[in-house]
Amino acid sequence: MENIQLQVSGLIKRFGTETVLNGIDLSVRKGEVVVVLGPSGCGKSTLLRCMNGLEPKSAGTILLDGEEVTSDSKKIAQLRQKIGMVFQSYDLFPHKNIMDNITLAPVKVQKRSKKEVEQDAERLLKRVGLWEKRKAYPRELSGGQKQRVAIIRALCMNPEVMLFDEVTAALDPEMVREVLDVILELAESGMTMVIVTHEMQFARAIADRIIFLDNGKIVENSPPELFFTNPQTQRAKDFLQTFAYEKRRTAIN
């Protein structure tokens, strides 16, 4: 049990009378990459948002490193330093340049020296080929560049877990790759990750485990090879079918 990094048990989330998550049990081991799949609106984002306390849960427990994730206490700010999150919308701070976007939280929240953080930022920016853009403002960057910066911004907090919520969904097709490559590299470096994506090939390549959500429950929890070649439920089969269709359609176009 030592190496369980993130443990979700009996998680229930309701919005009003609608039950979005209806008893989720999931543990993520250290260094593991879990990809969450499911039809639109099935609660993937909600699950991730509960994991870092952005969304208060209705019942159940979430433990990060054995510590409870609650959405109200002051402790959550402390806890969130261990759990990085990147969203679909590019939400860099538009009034700060790239370097300041990255260094803001490590310096002001973690009280690290600006110089040290800037060295980290330099190393990471160079690795993704964006060092030249350090003085640029977010509006001067393409969507793919912004998402890479958003990932670096989260990484500079030295998190133990990274959550990705459809980070390529709003990108032009030619930019998807550059962002996914960064996440792949991160996986190779051993980062624990929970990823929501609609890129099936990417999911298959990166995942140690696929979680398929439907009707507020995990209906499949299997290794990628099994999930993609021989899904156990009809819902998962139908879901994969829609992607097969989309793939054919893009091939025709």
């Binding site: 700010a77 969130r80 919308s89 860099l92 701070f93 009034h95 939280a105 002001k108 929240v109």
Partner: peptide, 26 residues
Amino acid sequence: EKSQIESAASLGMSKLLTMKEVIFPQ
């Protein structure tokens, strides 16, 4: 936008710091 506040929160920023560094300047 709410997403600005949420991304500040997910970086571990307190409410006060978020107001000062993120909300107010914008």
